[in-house]
Design a protein around this nucleic acid. Sequence first.
DNA 1: TGCATACCTGCGTGGTTGTGCAGCTATGCA
DNA 2: TGCATAGCTGCACAACCACGCAGGTATGCA
Lengths: 119, 119
Amino acid sequence: MHLVPPDRANRRSIDGHRVCEAIAAIGDADRVRTWAGRFSLLADANRLALLFALHRTGPLAVSDLAIATGMNDPAVSQALRLLRAAGVVERHKEGRVARYRVVDEDIRRLLEHCAADTG
Amino acid sequence: MHLVPPDRANRRSIDGHRVCEAIAAIGDADRVRTWAGRFSLLADANRLALLFALHRTGPLAVSDLAIATGMNDPAVSQALRLLRAAGVVERHKEGRVARYRVVDEDIRRLLEHCAADTG
DNA sequence: TGCATACCTGCGTGGTTGTGCAGCTATGCA
DNA sequence: TGCATAGCTGCACAACCACGCAGGTATGCA
C-alpha cells in the first residue's frame, strides 16, 4: 500500500501505515467534494427548513413557504433558485403559482436521516 | 391546526392547510439550527476528508493527516480546532504527538451514511 | 545546552454567501 | 385597460470563513 502521492512522499510520518489507511478511507477526491457540496446545501437553517417542509408536505408555493418559515419572499425565491440550480428541487408553474418539490434522492435520504432522529 | 404565528397570520396563503403541515414538518427551530450546524461542519471538503480518515482509521496525528489530505499543518490544525470546539473530535496528547478521534455520535452516523453510499 | 520535531496561534487576505431593498415581469380578474 | 397578486432579479452591504505565512510553544534527543 503505497498510496502517498509522490509530492508528499518525502514527509516524515508518525504512524506510517495509518497514513495509507487514511488515504484509502478518504477515497476519491471528487466523492468527497460531492458530499461536501451536498452538506453545504443543507448547512443553512432557512434552506434546511424549506427542504424539511417540501420533503414532508410535497409541492408548496413560494409564498406559503415564506409564511411557514417566516422568511420574506425574495429570500425564499433565491434559496429555491440555488437549490434548483443544484438539481435538488424542481419547479412546476401553474398560472402564476410556482410549486416546488424535492427531486434529489441523495438529499431525500439525508432529510430522512434527520427526520429519523427526532420524529 | 392553527400553527401560523400571529405576526404572519394575516398573509394570504395559496394552500392554507399545507402551510400548517409545512410548519409541523419544520418542527422546532432549534432542531433545524442544530442540524444545519452539523451539516455546516461537513460542508468543507478538507474537513470532511479529515473526518473520513479519522472515522475509519481511528486516532491519527496532525502531520499524518496533513500527508494524507495534502493540506499543510496549520490548515489541519485549524480545522481540528474548529471541530474540537464543536465537540466533534477529541485530542489525546502523547509527548509531542497529538492524536485526534471522532467522538460525536451524530456526526459518526452521518459519516456512515456517506460510507454506505460508495463503499 | 543546543537543535530538530510536532503542533499551535495571530494576522492579513481573498473569496464566498446570506440578506434586505427596490424594482421588474407575468398572470388573473373586473 | 387598470389593478392586485405571485414570483423573480440586481445591487450593495456585511459577515463569515478557509487559507497561507510567519512566528511561537513544547517535547525529545544528543
